[in-house]
Amino acid sequence: MQKSILILGACGQIGTELTIELRAKYGSENVVASDIREGGESLMQSGPFELLDATNYEAIEDVVMHYEIDEVYLMAAMLSATAEKFPMRAWNLNMNSLFNVLNLAKEKKISKIFWPSSIAVFGPNTPKENTMQSTIMEPSTVYGISKQSGERWCEYYFKKFDVDVRSVRYPGLISWKTMPGGGTTDYAVDIYHEALKKESYECFLNEETKLPMMYMDDAIRATINLMESPSEKLSVRSSYNLGSMSFTPKEVAQNIRKHIPNFEISYNPDFRQQIADSWPSSIDDSAAKRDWNWQPEFDLEKTTEEMLDNLKDTV
């Protein structure tokens, strides 16, 4: 069946790659990219693009009506490290953009929503190992608070208004195609760039900070698989835990040395250390595996090979 898709925040770290993948799958003309600024060449030239503020309901509604949009992927957000510097701006963007698309679906102007949550919904009192789907959630960051609130609103709109909204809690994401966007897990991208450029890296987290991570290809695949799953199979309408691999900066460095033997890493933890310390170190994603057959394909070794191989010609 033909569908028309709108991506809000298409120029961000996830949005860029998601847009390209959806266009390849559903046809370029059927996937409208949008953001508050223009994106890279591959995104801008591969299909329709609209300059759009995700906090402006009327502007989104106009685009939805013009293109007869069925599904919206809301990728616009201010991430953890940046949000700590601009708390009210982050809350405004992260929450009002979500209400806009939830209300469009409530009014039956769109039929399906994807909205990303994050491991930031968990907090310092959450069990760190194999963090369960339902557990203590006391986020200590503005980003985490907005994502936890968003999860509750998604479930509320599903139960109260039958809004078909779907979500995953992304771990830290690693990609060679796009630069990170102000998150606490950004080191896991930066480290590969610096390894190739300078054979050294100063990490803003300490060497034993173990966090859940995922290669971007897996994240995009999980997102599309969830959106294509039959509604009746889905038991979670807040947000699904999504797992892949967990590692420390020290372990990434050891992996890089297999390819760049002289690579050196030093540690100078900053304010992001406190954020990282409040997050889980590994994730139980059995609900996603059960409901829509989620299975990651990338581990740390495969990710390191992909990152270094693809970046070597760009630095």
Rank of each mutant, 00 (worst) to 15 (best):
K198D: 04
E155S: 05
S229Y: 15
S134V: 13
I145R: 11
K198W: 06
M214W: 04
V101P: 08
W176C: 13
K106D: 01
V142K: 14
L102T: 01
N206D: 07
D217C: 05
D162S: 04
L102A: 01
Y156M: 01
G172W: 00
S146G: 13
S175N: 00
D190N: 11
M213V: 02
A188D: 05
E138N: 14
D164A: 05
A222M: 00
S167T: 02
L211G: 07
G182W: 01
L173Q: 04
F122S: 02
S117P: 00
F114M: 02
I110D: 00
N96H: 14
E129W: 09
Y143G: 14
N96K: 12
K147W: 15
A120L: 08
T131M: 09
D217Q: 05
S146D: 09
I119R: 02
A105Q: 04
T135W: 12
D190T: 15
L98H: 04
K198M: 04
K112F: 02
W115G: 03
F161S: 15
S140N: 15
S97K: 02
R152Q: 13
S118E: 05
T141M: 14
I174E: 06
L226N: 06
Y170S: 01
G182N: 03
V189A: 03
K147H: 14
N103M: 01
N92C: 06
E228T: 06
A219V: 13
E194C: 11
A195P: 10
N125M: 09
G183Y: 11
D186C: 14
P127C: 08
P212N: 12
F204R: 06
R89H: 15
S134P: 11
L196V: 08
N225Q: 10
R169N: 13
I136N: 13
S175V: 00
R166T: 11
I145H: 11
D217P: 03
S140R: 12
N92V: 06
G181D: 12
Y187I: 12
A195E: 05
E194S: 15
F161C: 08
G123M: 00
Q133G: 11
L226W: 04
E199Y: 02
A120G: 09
E207G: 10
Y156T: 00
S140H: 13
S118Y: 05
K159W: 09
S134A: 14
F204C: 06
C203V: 03
N96Y: 11
I224L: 12
R169Q: 14
S149V: 10
M213R: 01
F114Y: 02
N130T: 07
N125I: 07
T126S: 09
W176N: 15
L93S: 08
L104Q: 02
F99K: 06
